[in-house]
Amino acid sequence: MDSKFKINDEVIVDSRSSTGHCRTPAYIRGKKGIIERICGRFPNPEEIALCKKDPKIVTLYRCRFKQMDVWDNYSGKDSDTIELEIYEHWLNDA
């Protein structure tokens, strides 16, 4: 299956809330960044945590965010960045 996003695409992390185990930290939800690289396809940890048989295989991306876009009143430099791994079902087109 093709990946939905390609490198340098602009994305927004979904801001929905979640229950159970999830690897999308709250602080990055709703934030806008770009795709840094495509890491490959992995079983969805949200389903593994619940012992679901045959968990869905999802594409994982590394996403890059400007720190200024993540935190209000970020005290560092404009060029500072933060990178996280986000599964495809948590990413939307910017």
């Binding site: 992995f42 590394r62 430099k77 500072d80 990178e83 791994e85």
Partner: peptide, 14 residues
């Protein structure tokens, strides 16, 4: 100050 700081949150499979 002239250096960029890049934080990596090792939050998933890497």
């Amino acid at each position: 100050e002239s250096k960029e700081i890049k934080v990596h949150d090792s939050n998933a499979d890497m």
